[in-house]
Amino acid sequence: MELTVRLFALYRERAGTKVFSLELPGGATVSDLTDAVRLRYPRLAPPDVKIVVAVNSDYAEPEDLLKPGDDVCLIPPVSGG
């Protein structure tokens, strides 16, 4: 299945793009997606940093299944005060 992935803030800067297409097999999970994204953009986030994923405007868990046409966003950690 082909998914469109949107990146925000720091992730957009590190990847050099705000949106890209990603091909994953049917039955792929959010964890499969983040693994594929880390391979494609190794500088996106250190291995010990959890990439927060939103699917169809809801925060997603690593085991959540993805479907063709899902709206996928990667959200970097936010700091400030």
Rank of each mutant, 00 (worst) to 15 (best):
P68Q: 12
L65M: 12
K50T: 15
S57R: 15
L44P: 00
P62T: 01
P62G: 05
V52D: 11
A45D: 06
D70F: 09
V30I: 07
R14K: 15
S21T: 11
A54W: 07
D70C: 07
V5F: 03
S57C: 02
D64A: 14
V78P: 00
L24F: 02
P25Q: 06
R6L: 10
E23M: 09
L74G: 02
R38K: 13
K50G: 02
D48H: 14
G69D: 12
V53Y: 10
P25C: 04
D70H: 11
K18T: 07
L74C: 05
P46L: 10
L39D: 09
V78Y: 08
G80S: 05
L3G: 02
P47L: 09
G26E: 15
V30F: 01
L44V: 10
A28M: 04
V49H: 11
G26D: 15
L39F: 12
G27Q: 06
T4V: 12
R43A: 14
E23C: 01
D35S: 14
E61S: 11
V72G: 04
L10Q: 14
E13C: 03
G16W: 03
L10D: 06
R14E: 05
E63A: 14
A36W: 07
T29H: 07
M1Q: 12
A9R: 06
D64N: 13
L10K: 13
P42Q: 10
V78T: 03
